[in-house]
Amino acid sequence: MALRGNLRDFSFTQILNLINLAQKTGMLTVEGPGEMARIYFRDGKLALALIGREENDLSAILARSRKITANQARVIRERTRMMTDKEVGLLLINAGYLSQKDVFDSLQLYSIEVIRRLFTWVEGIFQFDQTSPVPTGKIPVRIDLENLIMEGSRQLREWEQLQEEIPSLDMALKFTDRPGANLRHLNLNLEEWRVVRYVNPKNSMRQIAQATHMNDLEIRRIAYALLQAGVVEMVRPGGIPPVMPPRSLPPVNKEEHKSLIQRLINRIRSL
């Protein structure tokens, strides 16, 4: 089954959210205008991100994070031409030039940088392939996606889209019961914390906005980020009775209503 689409319709942040929630393993290919990125995931965590024709061997990544100089990177590349990143990493660690932490920090930083660039892509085709593991020889990292999703969501500024996602500020927010959703692992900024303080099924988003002196756009932006990260969900605010439309068939009593539904079930089964 396909998991592919267009970034115009399904943003990169939403793809990350899907991969995170489904704890997917595989390779996401994103083809933007003139550039292509390959992002690998393991159990819903970011394992490796590579972009375009950019030099992305270990020595280049170490130079980028200033663990080594550009000149050192060039020398390492020349001397280890036939070696994989794993072998080069081991060589540098065993020789005492770098620690394992230096290597992992650099790789993490690089993958996160690639993801940040992808947040800015609004045009492109994506496809997820569950059969493609991290290439042999590359060093996989393990980065939680929640904070990246939060960051990507923060970059979302399109008012129209936010309005579509959160059509009414009269809805309330409540913390999700989803296992694994944990505020402690999230890096919330000050504004987000101010909203989180008021998250309660009794408070509509409009009331939260008033209490925190935020405008419609600001509250929508933060609510959207929290929703995307799976921390909260939208609910009808407590205390406001649901709008009950007039029924064409008012159930006279519970038993009668049940009997009616049972008759419908029997009829549909017999079709």
Partner: peptide, 16 residues
């Protein structure tokens, strides 16, 4: 997938 967001909006509207 370009219609998923709209589907979500329709769902929320009918729930309301």
């Amino acid at each position: 997938p370009e219609t998923f967001r709209e589907a979500r909006g329709i769902l929320e509207t009918f729930r309301a």
